[in-house]
Design a protein around this nucleic acid. Structure first.
Length: 484
RNA sequence: GGCCCUAUCGUCUAGUGGUUAGGACACAUGGUUUUCAUCCAUGCAACCGGAGUUCGAUUCUCCGUAGGGCUACCA
């Protein structure tokens, strides 16, 4: 059984790029029947915040990505939060082995020393490699320094290998020259494991078989692979995903506008749409289908169709896709999604209707909506307020023939005992026929006179929902107004 | 600077040693619609450059170029 993990660090709100990584891990799990693990990498004490971890859960929940094992869910390989694993001594235990086997060593160099070496390397146009000053310390020297309160780290000694092959599930084998890689920190001076160290220990101990992550981790991979070997664990298969870029083709970041998943939720995107859209950023099916439900995505997804090149995040297409999803929703489901985005003014309008009419109203304007809050621009037509209506009507000019059409309609429509769409439509048809089949000459004045607006959803729908009472109020007003 | 990855319409992408290089978004035009929107049709638009391999390269190789990533006691 394969095991994959999504390992975000709670140092900010869940990012769209991070979410994509989670999604691909999730899709991999669904497709290849793997266990999906959520691990919180919070070893950066300064930047990690509980509220960010909460934001991650919130985003995962919204997207419907549910972990099989994780901090909240538990599991046999826990704990799943790195700070808790530190307390359990998990990293220390492995570190002792490395120290014992002389694969790692204490380093007492100061920031100042290290910065100097780095500057020197830069000056000489050479890659920075740690001088290994501390590798050659005698046992006595080390003991003495360890007893003092002098700051120390533990570093990994990079083996002198010319060629280290990293196999990647997405691209060809990648060849690294280890002589160009500097010894790096395993244990930070604050006593916490570094990322490159903790990630290896955790992936190893949690039995991770496949690591699916962003391409920005490629250069970390040789270090991690070396650590796997030094610890005697079998490394996972790595798969490096292309990056998501902003419009200017640089790494997607805050300056590109909305990048937090919650931003998209708040703007009125449907999680289904984002899910579908993100899946298509770096993966493509064998045919030209673009709209997938979650189930078919889970079965169609495959690692061998992941692309290698970075992708620009195109909000315009996401917006289009959101519209597609909105239009595919059933009336009740659409109403439920839309309601939280309706503003107070429009809420007041809807309050004058029954629950089932509200659902019909919302459904009647679905073609005009790309983002959920767009609904607010289309509800005015259903305003039953007489004051607001009469004021709007007074701003229009009506010709005599237009007045006649409106009056005709008002007379005929009340012949129906019920205001169903069919009945209203039938009345309309009669009037259109009377006017030489010229629909424009009928629909436009009726909309202006009865609604007080020039645009809006289907007039037949509006009239049937407005109902008899409101319409008779308006009709009698128009009767007086037109003859005045 | 060093190391690594990548390169097809503006964007997301499909694809092949010989194709009219396909689809989607966007854009333009036309149609349907009472209007807006939706929907439908059509159009516009791409193989980064140079060598090499080959009868033939967008496709394979190399070299450039461009973009991206990493180069931390951040993850």
């Amino acid at each position: 059984m394969k095991r994959v993990r999504f390992a975000p660090s709670p140092t900010g709100n869940l990012h769209i790029g991070t979410l994509r990584t989670a999604l691909f891990n999730w899709l991999f799990a669904k497709r290849y029947n793997a266990t999906y693990i959520l691990r919180i990498e919070d070893t950066d004490k300064a930047r990690s915040k509980p509220e960010y971890e909460g934001n991650i859960y919130e985003g995962m929940d919204w997207m419907g990505i549910i972990e099989d094992e994780g901090p909240k869910k538990g599991g046999k390989f826990g704990p799943y939060r790195q700070t808790e694993r530190i307390v359990d001594g998990i990293y220390q235990k492995q570190l002792d082995r490395l120290l014992e086997e002389k694969k790692a060593y204490y380093c007492f160099c100061t920031d100042h020393d290290l910065d100097g070496e780095r500057e020197d390397a830069k000056h000489k146009n050479r890659p920075y490699i740690y001088s290994r000053k501390c590798l050659h310390l005698s046992a006595e020297e080390i003991d003495e320094k360890l007893k003092s309160d002098i700051s120390r780290t533990v570093k990994f000694e990079i083996p002198d290998t010319k060629s280290l092959i990293v196999s990647d599930g997405v691209r060809d084998d990648i060849d690294f020259d280890c002589r160009l890689i500097s010894d790096f920190v395993l244990l930070k001076s604050d006593g916490n494991p570094s990322y490159n160290y903790s990630v290896v220990v955790d992936d190893a101990l949690m039995g991770i078989t496949d690591v699916i992550r962003g391409e920005d981790h490629i250069s970390n991979t040789p270090r991690q692979l070396l650590l796997f070997k030094a610890l005697g664990f079998t490394p996972p298969q790595y798969h490096h995903l292309p990056m998501i870029l902003g419009q200017d083709k640089s790494k997607l970041s805050k300056r590109h506008g909305a990048t937090a998943v919650t931003d998209y939720e708040n703007q009125g995107y449907l999680s289904d749409a984002l899910y579908n859209f993100l899946a298509l950023l770096g993966w493509s099916p064998t045919d030209t289908t673009e709209i997938f439900d979650r189930t078919s995505l889970s079965t169609l997804f495959s690692m061998d169709r992941i692309s290698k090149s970075n992708a620009v995040f195109d909000v315009t297409k996401l917006k289009w896709m959101n519209g597609q999803y909105i239009r595919s929703l059933e009336p009740a489901a659409l109403a439920e999604k839309v309601k939280p985005f309706i503003d107070d003014i429009n809420l007041a309008i809807l309050d004058t209707y029954t629950e089932s009419d509200v659902v019909k109203i919302i459904y009647s304007v679905r073609d005009n909506i790309a983002l959920l809050p767009d609904i607010n621009g289309y509800l005015e037509s259903f305003n039953t307020s007489f004051i607001s209506f009469s004021e709007k009507v007074k701003s229009f000019q009506f010709s005599d023939s237009e007045k006649q059409v409106v009056l005709d309609f008002c007379c005929s429509v009340f012949e129906h005992s019920e205001f169903t769409s069919e009945n209203i439509s039938e009345t309309m048809d009669v009037i259109v026929t009377k006017n030489d089949g010229k629909k424009g000459k009928v629909f436009k004045p009726i909309r202006k006179a009865l609604i007080g607006l020039e645009r809006g959803p289907n007039i037949v729908e509006i009239v049937s929902l407005l109902g008899k009472d409101v319409l008779s109020e308006r009709a009698s007003f128009l009767g007086k107004y037109f003859s005045a």
